[in-house]
Design a protein around this nucleic acid. Sequence first.
DNA 1: GATAACTTTCAAAATATTTTGAAAATACAA
DNA 2: TTGTATTTTCAAAATATTTTGAAAGTTATC
Lengths: 168, 168
Amino acid sequence: MKLTEARQQFISSWGAFGTHWGINRTMAQIHALLLVSPDPLTQDDMMEELNVSRGNVNMNIRELINWGLVERVLLPGERKEYFSAEKDIWKVVKQIVKERKKRELEPMLGLLDKLEEVEGDKRDKNVKAFVDTVSGIKKLGKHADRTLDLMIKAEENWFVSNMVKLFK
Amino acid sequence: MKLTEARQQFISSWGAFGTHWGINRTMAQIHALLLVSPDPLTQDDMMEELNVSRGNVNMNIRELINWGLVERVLLPGERKEYFSAEKDIWKVVKQIVKERKKRELEPMLGLLDKLEEVEGDKRDKNVKAFVDTVSGIKKLGKHADRTLDLMIKAEENWFVSNMVKLFK
DNA sequence: GATAACTTTCAAAATATTTTGAAAATACAA
DNA sequence: TTGTATTTTCAAAATATTTTGAAAGTTATC
């Protein structure tokens, strides 16, 4: 397979993959494109490679910057802004985990704390089922939260060697 | 907070949460409703509680059954079908991990295997950047795949105690 | 096998999300 | 400052997804 075709396949699959995880196609494709580009790209480069509009590229680039996955690069003597993605995949994963934890897991745990304190007699099976479910999710969620914190701090080598050993 | 209100909040937040993870709102809400219901429910019960149509409930219930999160229950002497969700959250998580691994991670790894064999001179920086990225994702993906396999086999107690210790 | 209870299907409608593109804003250079 | 290159915004259009509801299908009962 030629590079051009392989790149296209990668970018398009990464886009499709993203949509299964609540990430929009273009955002995932821009990220994929930057991942396989040795040098930083301009918005015009991306518009051309992905065949999308200027506004679309601009919005999604900013979103990727918010996620901490892409950064602006200023090339000396150049007027245009360039963008490049973090290439170390382990760092990328850690960054995504960190953000989703903050944006989704933590608020959910806060809500569960409140919901767990529902009024009512525990002998009522409806109350019991509710509290049991909420407590169960909260318990697992708190564990996940702590575990992910440690994972974020961990080094890749540490992760890939010890983690696998542990699970054997 | 009263049970009715707490249940509503739980169901609605669970629905919103799901949409961040590529799951549609109604499917997540049906799952949430079943999680907090002590007894199995009929499709009519769900239509009423969630204010959605019969077709919608039916489709999403089947999808939840496909995911292995809900099962049909036949109550003796009853004509209608009842449905109930697995209540053990650790089992729920394992089941979701298992399915997503099969549906998404494994096909992606297959594709990366192919893409890694792209033609071209590694001294070409475009080829190098592409191969490096694909290899990096593949490597981490394979580790994740193995790790998740072991997690699926693991017991909850084992998980919650050892996992946390490991990460300390 | 006819009727009634219930479930499934799926085209059309409703809704939500993404994308466009042109205008406004900003940054830079002369 | 003024003109030009570049980036950002956002309402409207395009597209994608979800939901509806009525008809068709199925299953149990008499």
